[in-house]
């Protein structure tokens, strides 16, 4: 069991580095389906895992290239701190089944947004030419 968990962390980590996406979207379903955790327990555990600043190295790379809007970032951090607390107050009293279904709907929305983002990137790449990438 311990080995499976270690392996799961490794594979989700590869996805995170590959796509630049927070691990939670992948972690929660993996905890539910592979480790058979309850939906609430999977979400709480995912919040715990996301606590350390895993994006620090990546942020440094973006900072060097001047691709960071610090003021907007701080505003976002504040909004998310209080928003996340409000979200947990909504989620905790819900029955696990409903929360699981709502999480499913959220994944569908995230999938659509990611698809749109990939399309936008594709357009930008074909406009700028292959040399501008990277």
């Amino acid at each position: 069991m311990t080995f499976i968990i270690l392996l799961l962390g490794l594979s989700v980590g590869v996805l995170v580095g590959l796509l630049g996406i927070g691990g939670g979207v992948v972690l929660v379903p993996a905890l539910v389906y592979l480790l058979h955790l309850d939906q609430h327990l999977a979400q709480g555990t995912s919040l715990f895992i996301l606590l350390p600043p895993i994006g620090l190295g990546a942020l440094h790379e973006y900072w060097k290239q001047g691709q960071v809007d610090l003021n907007a970032g701080i505003l976002c951090a504040l909004g998310m701190l209080f928003g996340a607390y409000a979200g947990s107050l909504i989620a905790l009293p819900l029955p696990s089944t409903n929360l699981k279904g709502m999480f499913g709907c959220f994944l569908i929305l995230a999938g659509i947004l990611l698809w749109r983002k990939a399309q936008l990137e594709g357009r930008a790449v074909s406009k700028a030419g292959e040399t501008a990438r990277g």
Partner: peptide, 29 residues
């Protein structure tokens, strides 16, 4: 930006995720 981030935060707390999945496309769009 603060309002949009708060909405992303609600999703983050409700679903136990980071929130970047929503925040990045919304900042762009």
């Amino acid at each position: 930006i603060f309002a949009i981030a708060s909405v992303c935060g609600v999703a983050s707390g409700m679903f136990g995720i980071g929130g970047g999945v929503l925040l990045v496309p919304l900042l762009v769009l």
